[in-house]
Amino acid sequence: MLDLPSRPGPAPEVYGPAPHAQRSQTAPVMLQEELWERMRALPFTYMAPTLVSVSHARSLFIPEGIGAGPAAAFQRGREWAHIHPHHDGSLHLTLPDPLKDEVEKAGWGVRHPEQDTILVYGPRERGELEVVWALVQLSYAYAVGELG
């Protein structure tokens, strides 16, 4: 079980399902970039063109043979996460269903209407960056088989 604080304020406007993205309360670009730098520094991850999102999303993959994450820990192929372009700043992650439920309940994101991922809202300020980063780390742990 996560100990997620409730996300303050109303939820941002979301549209989709294709693309599924955040329309309001856009994360400041500097926070998006700091999050991305942390994401791409995770061990064994590599960046490649997305297999599921808009062409200019930045996606992360884990090579075959690294970790033992279940098939549900990947969006397509070995892609486990992507962050949307600067005009949006949200990201799609894979998490086990109970954790997706907690993310939704605390107001940090919504499930994708057609895929088995969760849209996590972009961080609006530094405290939110830390919460989103914790969710990214859980998604990574799921992909490498360290989270059931």
Results as ranks from 00 to 15, higher is better:
104 E>M: 15
119 L>V: 08
14 V>M: 12
106 A>G: 09
82 H>E: 05
137 Q>A: 11
142 Y>T: 03
135 L>F: 06
87 H>F: 06
89 G>D: 03
103 V>L: 09
133 W>G: 02
136 V>T: 00
89 G>A: 10
48 A>P: 07
57 A>R: 00
49 P>H: 13
125 E>Q: 04
12 P>W: 04
33 E>D: 12
3 D>M: 05
37 E>R: 13
100 K>G: 01
35 L>R: 01
72 A>E: 15
115 Q>K: 15
106 A>S: 14
101 D>N: 13
121 Y>Q: 03
138 L>P: 09
75 Q>W: 03
7 R>H: 00
44 F>H: 14
112 H>P: 10
61 F>T: 08
18 A>R: 11
75 Q>L: 15
106 A>E: 10
144 V>R: 15
110 V>H: 12
9 G>A: 11
47 M>G: 07
53 S>T: 01
49 P>I: 02
130 E>A: 09
115 Q>E: 13
17 P>H: 02
67 G>S: 04
34 E>C: 00
141 A>C: 08
13 E>W: 02
79 E>F: 10
97 D>H: 09
69 G>N: 10
5 P>V: 07
23 R>L: 14
11 A>R: 10
2 L>V: 14
62 I>Q: 04
115 Q>G: 01
90 S>E: 02
90 S>P: 05
70 P>F: 11
32 Q>C: 12
145 G>A: 12
112 H>W: 09
76 R>W: 09
88 D>M: 13
111 R>Q: 00
9 G>T: 00
60 L>D: 02
3 D>A: 14
53 S>Y: 00
61 F>N: 06
85 P>E: 08
11 A>G: 03
18 A>T: 13
